[in-house]
Design a protein around this nucleic acid. Sequence first.
DNA 1: CACGAGACCTGTTCGC
DNA 2: TGCGAACAGGTCTCGT
Length: 280
Amino acid sequence: MPELPEVETIVRRLREGNAAEGVLLGHRVLGVNVLWARTLRGADEATLQAQLPGQRLLSVGRRAKWVVMQFDNAALLLHLRMSGDLRVESQAAALQPHDRLLLDFEGGLRLTFNDPRKFGRAWWTQDPAAALADLGPEPLDEGLSDAVFYQRLHRVQRQLKPLLLDQRFLAGLGNIYTDEALHRAGLHPLRRSNTLTIEEAQRLLRAIRAALQEGIRRNGASIDWVYRGGNFQNYFRVYQRTGQPCPVCGTPIVRLLVGQRGTHICPVCQPAPDTPAGGV
DNA sequence: CACGAGACCTGTTCGC
DNA sequence: TGCGAACAGGTCTCGT
């Protein structure tokens, strides 16, 4: 489920802990339970069992779509991919279907990583900065200027949608927020990145930030059978709204396939780029 | 370099 | 009703 706003929401909740039973921050891990071995990366189960118990959780943060849990001597990096979820609950709570990794903390709390599709990953690493080194800039970082964004767009000649999904170009967007941002910016997903004017680049960066900030404000989007309590899904402009009216002009939303991903646009607000071959 | 296809996985929904 | 196909919020690798 998670893109940047959903991960941000999850991270904030992890910091708060479980209202009824306490927080994880500052507490030591007592035990680790690996229920699906392929969840682990960077270290095998024996290493994790040898190194994680006894370590205190110092901070919980986010980088792109990664949850960064810093312990005394190393970090646990969690990526939820398509279907991952994190719960903070009592160690007495019953296991749920698809639970993959359990961390029991002193004080009686447990952090549970649940992931039906098994795509999610937990990296145990002494050097989290190196593990995250290939990620592009954070879109909400004010240090990312219009001029720099424009330059980055012009360094390559790629379709906008796959480019925005490339975490090395910009870190944190996924399928929902890319579609929403392109609609807000009035740009077609197949536009070539190096054809954008400085004004269009500026509009795109502002649209990305507006979509992400609205997502965070609404605690993320909750779709399908995974429900997290966010309600951004009720405010989508185009995502999964095929056939419904564009909120700007009323034209029915159209679904395309771009880079193997379902893509939703308003054909009027987001005019197709000229193509030498004629037709997209 | 840029893109498409396939892989990794399970669950839900759609269409006949 | 039943059953297979299509689809799902993400990345990774390989071939062209």
